[in-house]
């Protein structure tokens, strides 16, 4: 895949929709394109976060380690951004991401990602929006889980 095609892909992602194509080309040029084989983890819970990944093709499971073994908490697919929380918070990875089949992703290094956010407020807002959506979805799930728990208990 050529750089131009990657730029085209990036443009279709909501996070980057409002960013000029020339900037996206720069982002694509300076990022590494990675292929993950089935079974290979993109990163593991507890690792130090050094990059965020933008999935270009393929799907992946998000797993969280629990006392009874890892459980899948979500699945993500094309155009999804993963791993950004760890680099934003400077914290270890809070989950494991494991591709379901062959997966292609753009690896955006931590300092590049942070630089992009500071330089493009649109992108910062977009990242916030993605994160906020996730929080609200998590809240919904949490309240659902609590209700179910109560029903089970009661």
């Amino acid at each position: 895949m050529k750089l131009e095609d990657e730029v085209e892909l990036l443009r279709r992602i909501p996070l980057f929709a409002k960013i000029e194509p020339s900037r996206l080309k720069l982002l694509a040029f300076t990022s590494d394109r990675m292929t993950f084989e089935p079974g290979q983890e993109m990163f593991h819970q507890g690792d130090i976060g050094d990059a965020a990944y933008l999935i270009l093709s393929g799907e992946a499971d998000i797993l969280v380690d629990t006392s009874s073994g890892p459980i899948t908490v979500a699945s993500i697919g094309r155009n999804a951004l993963v791993g950004e929380i760890s680099i934003l918070c400077d914290a270890p990875r809070n989950a494991t991401v494991r591709p379901k089949g062959k997966l292609e992703a753009l690896k955006i290094k931590k300092e590049h990602f942070l630089r992009l956010i500071t330089e493009f407020p649109e992108m910062a807002i977009e990242v916030m929006r993605v994160l906020a959506n996730r929080v609200s979805a998590t809240n919904d799930e949490l309240s659902l889980a609590k209700r179910q728990l109560k029903e089970l208990a009661g």
Binding site: L26, F29, T30, R115
Partner: peptide
């Protein structure tokens, strides 16, 4: 041409440069 186009208006200490 490509590199100049991409990097022309970046400050010289920009982390992107290490990628070139």
């Amino acid at each position: 041409g490509t590199v100049v186009e991409l990097f022309a208006d970046l400050p010289p200490d920009h982390p992107f440069f290490e990628q070139v």
